[in-house]
């Protein structure tokens, strides 16, 4: 298994390299630059700034320079927040975003899977329709609608929870719920479909034919099969949580890294955007690896291959 992990990680290096390359040249191809402010800077200052950040060198030199720094773990200085390096910003923001995303993912898994199984066991009955309806609702309502409503309802009117900010567990409730809702919906639908499929399979018929109690039929012979598609969805889910966190972090005023994406891209803060891309790409790679490991653990037909 260790060999498998190492091989997979090694296989991810070219992927990340290509991602970095595409992202680097794409952001550089965008018009404008980090120092194009509304009031143009004095040409001399501009020149100095460009020289300080190596922007006056040919693009390929900058690319090689960036790659070199990246290999040493150096994300470079932020262009717009000039007192901080990108690494400094991540040191503060990343733990917050990871906490937020991790909690949301866990919540989504627990609630979504439970609802999905419940619906499947009560297929075409009231509870099933309710879950399907809620799930469709969860998928269709944008989180930037949910966020202000929750914030207003529980934060402002009822005053039960803080309407924004970050720090205590109470601060986490609303953002985590907001972020988890669409994932709950998707996971519930996935689980429902997979459970229904599993309940119809021949080996469940065998288990029933051998008089195993319903609990055993469901827990042992259905759920494990039903959880497989959910496991493979975790990769995309992680990516979706990162995207979703842009909105949630903005509305609830959370100091995570999601915001840097939009701000960095709009301000042409090259290093900040590149840093975010790299971090997310690494996350996706690690998540996909974890998904594969979990899958192989759950399904003996899958071996650690490739």
């Amino acid at each position: 298994m260790l060999g498998f992990v190492l091989r997979r990680l090694a296989g991810a290096i070219p992927t990340i390299f290509i991602v970095v390359t595409i992202a680097f040249f794409m952001i550089r191809a965008a018009p404008g630059g980090p120092f194009d402010l509304e009031r143009p800077l004095d040409p001399l200052i501009m020149q100095n700034l460009n020289a300080a950040f190596h922007l006056d060198e040919p693009l390929w030199r900058q690319y090689l320079l960036y790659l070199g720094n990246l290999l040493q773990g150096d994300f470079g200085p932020s262009f717009t927040r000039r007192d901080f390096s990108v690494a400094d910003l991540f040191a503060v923001g990343l733990p917050v975003s990871v906490t937020l995303g991790g909690l949301a993912l866990s919540l989504a898994l627990v609630v979504g899977a439970s609802l999905g199984v419940l619906a499947a066991l009560r297929q075409n009955k009231g509870a099933d329709y309710a879950v399907v309806g809620i799930a469709t609702f969860g998928i269709t309502i944008p989180n930037f609608v949910v966020a202000p409503i929750l914030s207003l309802l529980f934060g402002v009117w009822m005053g039960w929870l803080p309407a924004g900010g970050w720090g205590t567990p109470a601060h986490m409730v609303l953002p985590v719920v907001t972020l988890a809702l669409p994932q709950i919906a998707i996971i519930a639908r996935l689980t429902r479909g997979a459970t229904i499929e599993a309940l119809r399979s021949n080996h469940v018929r065998t288990a029933r034919a051998y008089g195993l109690p319903t609990r055993v039929v469901v827990v042992t012979h259905t759920l494990r099969a039903a959880i497989l598609p959910v496991v493979s969805y975790l990769g995309p889910a992680a990516a979706a949580l990162l995207t979703g966190s842009v909105v949630v972090e903005t509305i609830f005023g959370i100091p995570g890294i999601g915001r840097y994406f939009v701000q960095g891209a709009l301000a042409r803060d090259y290093t900040l955007v590149m840093g975010t891309v790299v971090v997310i790409a690494i996350f996706v790679v690690i998540f996909n690896l974890l998904v594969d490991l979990a899958y192989a653990l759950l399904d003996p037909r899958v071996r650690y291959e490739r």
């Binding site: 994406f261 891209a265 790409a281 790679v285």
Partner: peptide, 13 residues
Amino acid sequence: ILYSLPFIFFVIL
């Protein structure tokens, strides 16, 4: 590879 590029990055660009 395109999958592992953050989608939102593309969109914003």
